[in-house]
Simulated assay, not measured.
Amino acid sequence: MGAAGGKDTAATGGDAIAGEQRRLLNVAYRLLGSVTEAEDAVQDAYARWYALSPGGRAAIRSPGAWLTTVTGRICLDLLGSARARRERYVGAWLPEPLPGLAGRELRGGSGRAGAADPADQIVLDESVTTAFLVVLESMTPAERVAFVLHDVFRYPFTEIAGVLGRTPAACKQLAASARRRVGGVRAPVAADDRAEVVRQVKEAWENRDIPALVGLLDPAAVMTADGGGPAGAAPRPVEGGANIARYMVAVADRAPGLELLELPVSGLPGLVARRAGTVVTVASFGIADGRVTRIWVVRNPAKLRPWAGDGGTAGP
């Protein structure tokens, strides 16, 4: 996804402009961590494009770059107000998890499923994993924009300067600062090894086997759950492998009838819980040295819409 935004699409008409949507949605999701907000930001950018006079649009040499700049500025404004919105959020806030192909098949081909679903247009790679997006949340809005546009999408700092309203040199410093925050998040874990750990967690959880869970969890592991208010979730992170194991078993005892599935979550092996055919929980994992170090659990129904067969809200 390293295409820069300077691509000249002026001569190819409206189809080319519409064709920018997928790329813009990928940029906006990584900047915002929300499929719904990303879609709204891209639609806002297109509305501003079509609000220009025909002469104004014709004068823009690179509509793709113009749309990228506008989308970036919209996302920057949203990130600036996000802190206040997150302070009002009930419990911990986590980015929306994305289903892979198998997760999309859960929806049965109805409703939002299909090419028109914004979540289906987002490319799954290391820059959309939960661990990566959580680190992006720790950045300032300007750092996040500079880092995502440059390090993920390979936009030059001269173009990023137009988004942030800063000099290219200042944008380069922002990206470098953000890069230091990322640290070891990109440290690879073999896919087979990661999947095997998740599989063992599933089996131990289903068997209510606390000792087995403790053995799979790092002693300093942390579990963060996002219920958003409509769905029950631990209000604060649960710390320590033993505490997490006991919490997981207690939750299993209180939730009979759950079906636990091993499915890709935001591009990595994860667990998805269904009740009566409806996805109610999506969990992703941070893994190091064969043990689970982080668990991120999303139960907020609004954040599980990409997993829902009818495009509606998942049940409590």
Results as ranks from 00 to 15, higher is better:
Val182Asn: 00
Tyr155Asp: 14
Glu137Ile: 14
Arg144Lys: 15
His150Asn: 14
Pro188Met: 04
Leu174Ala: 03
Arg180Trp: 01
Cys171His: 13
Glu143Asn: 12
Gln173Asp: 15
Val148Lys: 13
Asp151Ile: 04
Thr158Gln: 07
Phe153Ile: 04
Ala142Trp: 12
Ala142Tyr: 07
Ala142Lys: 07
Ala178Thr: 01
Phe147Asp: 09
Thr140Glu: 14
Val145His: 04
Val185Asn: 07
Phe153Val: 06
Asp151Ser: 11
Val185Tyr: 01
Val182Arg: 00
Ala176Cys: 10
Arg181Ser: 02
Pro156Gln: 01
Phe157His: 07
Glu137His: 11
Phe147Val: 03
Gln173Ile: 12
Val185Cys: 02
Gly184Lys: 05
Arg181Lys: 15
Gly162Gln: 13
Leu136His: 09
Val189Asp: 07
Cys171Val: 15
Thr158Asp: 10
Met139Thr: 07
Ile160Val: 07
Arg144Asp: 06
Thr167Ser: 12
Ala178Met: 00
Val185Asp: 01
Leu174Gly: 05
Phe153Asn: 05
Ala175Arg: 06
Gly162Leu: 15
Ala187Ile: 08
Arg181Ala: 04
Gly162Ser: 12
Gly162Cys: 14
Gly183Arg: 11
Ala176Phe: 08
Leu136Trp: 12
Leu164Gly: 03
Arg144Tyr: 06
Pro168His: 09
Glu143Ala: 01
Thr140Phe: 06
Ala161Ser: 13
Pro141Asn: 10
Val148Asn: 10
Cys171Met: 06
Glu143Ile: 00
Thr140Leu: 09
Arg186Tyr: 08
Arg180Thr: 07
Val189Ala: 01
Val189Arg: 00
Arg179Glu: 10
Gly184Ser: 08
Thr140Ser: 15
Ala190Glu: 13
Thr158Phe: 06
Lys172Trp: 14
Ala190Ile: 12
Phe157Met: 10
Pro156Tyr: 02
Leu174Ser: 04
Glu137Phe: 13
Ala191His: 05
Arg154Pro: 02
Lys172Asp: 15
Ala146Phe: 06
Glu137Cys: 15
Ala142Glu: 15
Leu164Ser: 03
Gly165Ala: 06
Glu143Gly: 02
Arg181Met: 07
Arg181Asn: 03
Val148Ile: 14
Pro141Tyr: 09
Cys171Asp: 13
Gly165Arg: 09
Ala190Pro: 02
Val189Glu: 11
Phe147His: 12
Phe157Gln: 05
Pro168Thr: 08
Gly184Thr: 09
Arg144Ala: 09
Gly162Pro: 05
Glu137Val: 12
Gly183Gln: 09
Ala176Ser: 12
Val182Ala: 02
Lys172Thr: 14
Leu149Ile: 04
Ala191Cys: 01
Val163Arg: 07
His150Lys: 03
Pro168Trp: 03
Ala190Arg: 14
Pro188Phe: 01
Gly162Thr: 13
Gly165Asn: 07
Leu164Arg: 01
Ser138Phe: 10
Tyr155His: 15
